[in-house]
């Protein structure tokens, strides 16, 4: 992802606890409210909420915990998701729709349909993912908005 000349006007960070399905989704809904308060376009907000929610669920389901940091610049929403955990062995596969390594328990709860990363990529204008086996995953999403123009 290329760095732009514009710095963050505002930043927020959400800690994500592994395995906590009760609180899962809170980061996405808090971010949604912030973006609504900033008056961004509803479709932009929706894409940011979907990307954040799916990333949040990935951290809850697959990692040992992590955080989501969001920078809002004059023309973009930069979502950085970092977790410590087993990492993703085959990123290409993980980006295919329907591919999931979620456990049976998790699937029974209605999660782990293998749409997480594909949905995030679809919501993003820029998308990058790095993962180290045994260490964790770092996901960066950029969604452009025109509010600051």
């Amino acid at each position: 992802m290329t760095a732009r000349g514009t710095g963050a006007l505002m930043s927020v960070t959400y800690e994500i606890v592994a395995g906590d399905f009760v609180r899962a989704g809170e980061a996405a809904s808090k971010l949604k409210r912030v973006l609504q308060q900033l008056g961004l376009d509803p479709t932009i907000i929706r894409r940011a909420a979907i990307a954040t929610y799916e990333a949040e669920m990935n951290i809850v389901i697959h990692s040992y915990g992590g955080h989501i940091s969001v920078d809002i610049t004059c023309d973009s929403i930069e979502i950085l998701c970092e977790d410590s955990g087993p990492g993703i062995p085959d990123i290409e596969k993980a980006l295919q729709e329907g591919y999931s390594t979620a456990s049976e328990d998790v699937r029974e709860m209605g999660f782990g349909a293998g749409m997480g990363l594909p949905n995030i990529r679809r919501s993003a204008d820029d998308f990058s993912i790095e993962s180290r086996i045994g260490q964790g995953t770092r996901l960066q999403v950029r969604i452009l908005h025109r509010a600051g123009e």
Partner: peptide, 10 residues
């Protein structure tokens, strides 16, 4: 929405 102007909203 806090303000119609994005900078002011921030």
């Amino acid at each position: 929405k806090l303000d119609d102007d994005f900078t002011k909203a921030i």
